Deep mutational scan, measured.
Amino acid sequence: AITFRFEGQEKAKKFYEKLMRQNLEATIHIHGDEVHVTVH
């Protein structure tokens, strides 16, 4: 698994949606202002 870190939720959401379109499995974790997107 690879984890990407984002400042702010907007960028993270766009990235997450892009992964979903590519049929990749990903989970999102929100830590205050920092958002972690883990790709499995």
Rank of each mutant, 00 (worst) to 15 (best):
A1R: 12
A1W: 15
A1H: 13
A1T: 14
A1C: 11
A1D: 12
A1V: 13
A1Y: 14
A1F: 13
I2L: 08
I2S: 04
I2E: 04
I2N: 04
I2C: 13
T3F: 05
T3A: 04
T3Q: 04
T3I: 15
T3S: 05
F4H: 04
F4C: 12
F4E: 02
F4K: 02
R5K: 14
R5A: 07
R5G: 04
R5L: 08
R5E: 04
R5F: 13
F6S: 01
F6M: 02
F6E: 01
F6Q: 01
E7D: 14
E7T: 13
E7I: 12
E7R: 13
E7N: 13
E7A: 12
E7W: 12
G8A: 12
G8N: 15
G8Q: 13
G8W: 05
G8H: 14
Q9S: 10
Q9L: 15
Q9I: 15
Q9Y: 15
Q9V: 15
Q9T: 12
E10P: 04
E10V: 06
E10H: 06
E10L: 07
E10A: 08
E10S: 06
E10F: 05
E10D: 11
E10Q: 07
K11R: 10
K11A: 15
K11Q: 15
K11M: 14
K11I: 11
K11S: 14
K11E: 15
K11V: 12
K11Y: 09
A12R: 00
A12S: 02
A12V: 02
A12W: 05
A12P: 00
A12T: 01
A12M: 03
A12N: 01
A12D: 01
A12F: 04
K13N: 10
K13W: 15
K14Y: 08
K14I: 12
K14H: 08
K14N: 09
K14F: 08
K14S: 09
K14A: 14
F15C: 06
F15W: 04
F15T: 01
F15K: 00
F15H: 01
F15Y: 04
Y16L: 11
Y16D: 00
Y16V: 09
Y16N: 00
E17T: 04
E17I: 07
E17Y: 06
E17V: 05
E17H: 06
E17G: 03
E17Q: 08
K18W: 15
K18V: 09
K18M: 15
K18F: 15
L19R: 00
L19K: 01
L19V: 08
L19G: 00
M20I: 14
M20Y: 04
M20H: 05
M20S: 05
M20K: 12
M20T: 07
M20Q: 09
R21T: 09
R21Y: 07
R21L: 12
R21W: 08
R21E: 12
R21M: 13
R21H: 08
Q22G: 04
Q22W: 14
Q22E: 10
Q22N: 09
Q22F: 12
Q22T: 05
Q22D: 07
Q22V: 06
N23T: 04
N23G: 15
N23R: 06
N23D: 07
N23L: 06
N23A: 07
N23C: 02
N23P: 03
L24Q: 05
L24P: 03
L24S: 03
L24R: 08
L24I: 15
L24H: 05
L24F: 12
E25A: 14
E25W: 14
E25Q: 14
E25P: 13
E25V: 15
E25Y: 15
E25N: 15
A26D: 01
A26H: 04
A26V: 14
A26Y: 11
A26G: 03
T27S: 10
T27I: 07
T27R: 05
T27Y: 12
T27L: 06
T27V: 08
I28R: 00
I28D: 00
I28M: 10
I28G: 00
I28E: 00
I28W: 08
I28P: 00
H29W: 12
I30D: 05
I30G: 03
I30L: 11
I30T: 08
I30W: 12
I30M: 10
I30E: 06
I30A: 07
I30R: 07
H31M: 12
H31P: 00
H31L: 10
H31W: 11
H31K: 08
H31F: 13
H31G: 03
G32M: 05
G32E: 06
G32T: 03
G32K: 05
G32W: 05
G32V: 04
D33K: 11
D33W: 08
D33T: 12
D33I: 09
D33P: 06
D33G: 09
E34N: 05
E34L: 09
E34H: 11
E34V: 12
E34K: 07
E34T: 10
E34Y: 13
E34Q: 09
V35F: 12
V35E: 00
V35N: 01
V35A: 04
V35G: 02
V35S: 03
V35H: 03
V35D: 00
H36S: 09
H36G: 02
H36K: 05
H36W: 15
V37Y: 01
V37G: 00
V37D: 00
V37A: 00
V37E: 00
V37P: 00
T38M: 10
T38F: 08
T38R: 06
T38G: 02
T38L: 10
V39Y: 11
V39L: 13
V39D: 01
V39F: 14
V39S: 03
V39I: 13
H40L: 11
H40F: 14
H40D: 04
H40V: 10
H40T: 09
H40K: 11
H40I: 11
